[in-house]
């Protein structure tokens, strides 16, 4: 993974209203996630989804860290419900030129990245593509076989009133994309 590609991705995601974070290890990532969760006000329930992107070990680490400090306040769920405040899920690829990540429905429940107000996406050493054409050239065949491919390039937003951008119209208000 080249540093330049990540920097381009981070800059573009930032322009889109999201935030990219690069961590040294799984433990550092779990620590960062804990900080992000603590940074949000009145968090009662978070969903942590196991997938090949977010492995069991990392999940346990996150759950332990959050659970140990706030076991009475924060409920950690494996099932999405309407009252989840934060979702911690995986993703598949990074598209640097668009500041976006791609997720396929075989690996992820796409509703988890949509319903809670804060979405933290995490993956170990993801494949980074320069632009949309590159990712479709490399994986277009696989994408055709899955039911849904979702490309996320920032938090939910609207500019429908006087062209003022407001985040969190229907989907997440905050989006964090982490790699470690």
């Amino acid at each position: 993974m080249s540093q330049d590609s990540f920097n381009i991705f981070a800059a573009n995601l930032n322009d889109n209203g999201g935030q990219a974070l690069k961590l040294e290890s799984a433990e550092a990532a779990a620590q960062k996630i804990t900080e992000l969760v603590k940074g949000e006000a009145a968090v009662k329930k978070i969903i942590v989804h196991i997938s090949s992107c977010l492995n069991d070990l990392l999940k346990k680490d996150i759950v332990n860290k959050i659970g140990m400090q706030d076991s009475d306040k924060i409920l950690i769920s494996e099932n999405l419900t309407a009252d989840c405040d934060i979702s911690i899920t995986g993703y598949d690829y990074i598209i640097a030129g668009s500041g976006a990540v791609a997720l396929n429905s075989m690996e992820h429940d796409l509703k988890e990245t949509l319903v809670p107000p804060v979405n933290i996406l995490i993956k170990k050493a993801p494949e980074i593509f320069d632009n949309l054409n590159d990712i479709f050239n490399a994986h277009g065949g696989d994408f055709q076989k899955i039911s849904n491919l979702t490309i996320i390039s920032g938090p939910s937003k609207t500019a429908d009133i006087e062209k003022k951008i407001v985040h969190g119209m229907h989907g997440p208000k905050k989006l964090f994309v982490m790699i470690y």
């Binding site: 668009s98 976006a100 055709q144 849904n148 490309i151 996320i152 390039s153 920032g154």
Partner: peptide
């Protein structure tokens, strides 16, 4: 005027 819209869904079949 965006690099890419926030959400693009390409769907081939119902879940």
């Amino acid at each position: 005027g965006q690099l890419l819209n926030a959400y693009t869904t390409i769907t081939s079949a119902p879940e």
